[in-house]
């Protein structure tokens, strides 16, 4: 099953500022954590690529490819 994930901005209580987390998430999670989608960052990925918190790490695919090449 495919799912659309986006980069988003969200309030970071640690730094008391708005941040863009490195991992993308589906719109449902972004709404749940009161974030805002950054337009133009949508990407369709397999649901199995999300972690238990519904986060997708775009770098994971790069790392996996590098691991397979080595």
């Amino acid at each position: 099953m495919r799912v659309t994930v986006h980069h988003f901005k969200v309030y970071d209580a640690v730094t008391d500022s708005w941040i863009v987390p490195p991992r993308k998430s589906p719109a449902e999670r972004i709404e749940r954590i009161r974030g805002a989608i950054i337009p133009g960052t949508a990407e369709e990925v397999d649901r199995t690529a999300l972690d238990e918190q519904d986060r997708y790490d775009p770098q994971a695919r790069v790392h996996e490819r590098a691991r397979l090449l080595n």
């Binding site: 969200v10 970071d12 209580a13 640690v14 730094t15 941040i19 987390p21 490195p22 991992r23 954590i33 974030g35 918190q53 790490d57």
Partner: peptide, 10 residues
């Protein structure tokens, strides 16, 4: 089980 969303979460 939930962690705050943060730049350091990775």
């Amino acid at each position: 089980r939930c962690q705050p969303e943060s730049t350091v979460s990775l």
